[in-house]
Design a protein around this nucleic acid. Structure first.
Lengths: 234, 234
DNA sequence: TTTGCATACTGGTCCAACCAGTTGGTACCG
DNA sequence: CGGTACCAACTGGTTGGACCAGTATGCAAA
């Protein structure tokens, strides 16, 4: 019943990651030795090593056999997946940055999805669009978001480009990590039924230009909600 | 002198990652138990655990205490950093996909860099542009690529958006992973001196639209070299 | 001053054991 | 016969300790 408690290595990982992303450890700093860390966190050295492996995989540190483990310049070497961790580490601008990237990506995805428009995706598109409308009537905000995501899922698949797919995944992960705080900001976009209908129609028509415009219009809602003016109003 | 041999956990990680990305292990499959793997690779179980931790961090597997470790659907959950691993795992389209994403990203970066155009970056931009010209005269292709990258580095910084920065990093990592094979394809873009000059001038002018167009033109060179027609000609 | 090496760090690997969950089969009870 | 409870055999999680393998540093000898 009780959710399995997180492994100890995760606690170490979270702490170190927060120190790096939060700027308490800066590029070039040597993190304490594994033996020191294991003592500090009161865990076995193996657990520390697993945490460090994850940091290494995330591109946050560079490990040198015999030498110290040093913090890398993640702004210069980190991948997009780090975006999900930034808001929790005290970088509020990361959310806006993510949605700006999404706007750029969504426009391209919509255009390509419309241009390539594989027949297999057409019925899916219609179905997801209908499901989104139904969710709006249902009134459950979370369900609306899910339905909206599933609609874009089809478009991203239709765009037929792994890089778009993976980047989109990273952005969704980032959105999830930001949590409920930013969810109200999406409301205008989620409930622009006419905008979504325009997008779907353009995609089914194979009109890439119109699809791109429709996607841009949709994303603009959320960008507006994230603008400095809107932020001051909150 | 001899480069330090890779840790054994890396060998296990590479093998398992290749199995997942290469499709030999598909979504939902359970990977062998840690004890089995440690026996199979003739390494200690801790080494296997470190490898699995990295797979988990990369989003390729899902670990369950007491249950089996299962392969996740990385196309649905993986982040952009996976793009670097795809070509080596037998997905040749991944390279083209990456450059398509770059084209979309570069246009946006150029536009924003021009619009925001912080004064600090102006002299940098000029300097990097001159360095690129000098590198072209030098004749060292690798130096040209480095100089070109440094130019874009300034533009990405000037665009002032972490998400763009991180996505750009992922794309560079992917380009590096692809290695020398794809490098000749960049030649036309790297040596379009007039195109680069147009881009830099637009950025210094603060003309976002012109910068976007210039970036698109530049990226088009490489996209053309990657087109199906060009691929057949090779 | 410079060179070179012992030494005390750093991370890398192994062994062995036990804890903590999950799963599945089996024996028991209704 | 059907259902339930339980136990045994998995799975991953964690610990301790030992030793190997590189790196950095300071002191002693040239």
């Amino acid at each position: 019943m009780v959710p399995t408690r997180a492994p100890v290595s995760t606690a170490v990982y979270d702490a170190l990651r927060a120190d790096v992303l939060g700027g308490r450890l800066v590029t070039g700093d040597a993190i304490p030795s594994e033996r020191t860390l294991s003592e500090h966190f009161a865990v076995n050295r193996h657990a520390v090593r697993e945490a460090v492996k994850r940091l290494q995989q995330a591109g946050l540190v560079q490990v040198a056999h015999g030498g110290a483990t040093r913090v890398r310049d993640w702004r210069a070497t980190g991948g997009l997946e780090l975006l999900a961790d930034l808001p929790a580490s005290g970088d509020p601008d990361a959310v806006r940055a993510g949605y700006e990237l999404r706007a750029c990506l969504a426009a391209e995805v919509a255009a390509r999805a419309a241009d390539r428009a594989p027949r297999d995706h057409r019925s899916d598109l219609r179905a997801r669009s209908d499901a989104l409308s139904a969710a709006r009537d249902g009134g459950d905000e979370r369900a609306v978001l899910d339905a909206y995501r599933r609609l874009w899922d089809v478009l991203v698949d239709a765009a037929d480009n792994v890089a778009y797919r993976l980047a989109y995944n990273s952005l969704l992960a980032s959105e999830d990590a930001a949590g409920d705080v930013t969810r109200p900001l999406l409301r205008a976009e989620l409930h622009d039924a006419a905008g979504v209908e325009t997008l779907v129609a353009a995609a089914l028509d194979g009109d890439g230009g119109a699809a791109r415009d429709a996607a841009t219009t949709l994303c603009a809602h959320t960008l507006a909600a994230l603008s400095p003016e809107a932020a001051r109003a909150r």
